[in-house]
């Protein structure tokens, strides 16, 4: 009987995944230069540290965007209560509570799907500005700095979420 010797399978010393062939210099899963030079390995660890910092930064931005959604939920609910106390209109209260609930749901959903939750949150916020402007055009200019800040926080959160796995 022919004795077949199976070639030894190489695993990446960094991520422990299988390396496609013995001729491969880099691991095709994590990019570690398994058969590379010392300089290449040093460069890999340097890039890894930068990437780690970038991920921390991205997570911070997502957290800020999530907090923005929580704040929006609170502001909309309070505004609804104030409007109800002035106009005694249950519909205005209902709309504000519904909006608040949506922002809250999106804030919690952003723990699982940050990119999509923040994107929907941003679009919802833009729509709120647009609808308010239809009834009262001057609201477009009112609190413009706050609006830019909110859009900025949500926008940064979205693009940061796109750079890390959703």
């Amino acid at each position: 009987m022919e004795n077949l010797i199976e070639p030894k399978k190489l695993t990446c010393s960094h991520c422990k995944n299988l390396i496609e062939s013995s001729e491969a210099i880099f691991c095709n899963h994590c990019g570690f230069p398994e058969n590379g030079t010392k300089e290449q390995k040093g460069k890999f660890y340097g890039q890894l540290a930068i990437k780690k910092n970038r991920n921390i930064d991205a997570k911070d931005k997502i957290k800020s965007a999530r907090n923005t959604l929580f704040i929006l939920a609170g502001i909309v609910a309070i505004f609804g209560l104030l409007a109800y106390s002035t106009h005694q209109d249950i519909l205005i209260l209902g709309i504000n509570f519904l909006l608040s609930l949506i922002y809250l749901t999106l804030a919690f959903w952003s723990e699982k799907k940050p990119m999509m939750a923040l994107l929907i949150g941003l679009l919802l916020y833009i729509t709120t500005i647009a609808i308010t402007a239809i009834f009262e055009p001057t609201t477009l200019i009112k609190g413009v700095i706050w609006k830019i800040l909110i859009v900025g926080y949500l926008g940064k959160g979205i693009y940061s979420a796109s750079s890390i796995k959703d």
Partner: peptide
């Protein structure tokens, strides 16, 4: 490269 590759095994390009 294999369709699942995230890095090039020859030059390390992401």
């Amino acid at each position: 490269l294999d369709v699942n590759s995230r890095f090039c095994s020859s030059c390390g390009n992401q």
